[in-house]
């Protein structure tokens, strides 16, 4: 995992350029386009889906995110896909998950980068075409060992 040889030696502080954030209007337009494409004309329903993300994230480089379909899959109804969007990231689409009905449930956790404080959106497309949505506004702070 860690590159130990690098850690054995000193290194010059490299210059990193912060990821440029994009203008709010464009960001929102891009997010809306993503959601529209994902929803396929349906109106997303604000129910049945949980988006668990810290309201104040201490480490913007690794914000834990859980997306969970509240109900288990039933014979007729399962979840086909999750879409996760961070609308003020330089690339708003963060990731997608596709589920087989054999999973029996949809509950995933990952860690994402957030360029700044913003609204994070999770969407689910159900096998019957229904679209579920959940939005959470996240404030980015910094913590680490010494937050």
């Amino acid at each position: 995992m860690m590159n130990l040889s690098r850690r054995d030696t000193l290194r010059l502080g490299g210059v990193a350029i912060a990821a440029l954030t994009i203008a709010p209007a464009r960001a929102r337009a891009e997010t809306e386009a993503l959601i529209k494409e994902f929803a396929g004309g349906k109106t997303p329903k604000n129910a049945g889906l949980t988006l668990d993300i810290p309201l104040a994230a201490e480490n913007a480089n690794a914000v834990p995110v859980t997306i969970r379909l509240d109900d288990r899959f039933s014979g007729a109804r399962s979840c086909e896909e999750f879409l996760l969007v961070a609308e003020r990231n330089p690339i708003p689409e963060a990731c997608r998950f596709k589920f087989s009905p054999a999973m029996g449930m949809a509950d995933v956790t990952t860690r994402i980068r957030l360029a700044e404080s913003q609204t994070v959106v999770a969407l689910a497309r159900m096998s019957d075409g229904e679209i579920l949505v959940r939005r959470v506004s996240v404030t980015v702070t910094v913590g680490g060992c010494n937050g």
Partner: peptide, 9 residues
Amino acid sequence: LSWQLHPAI
């Protein structure tokens, strides 16, 4: 399960 990752991960 399949997961499609972008630079935000």
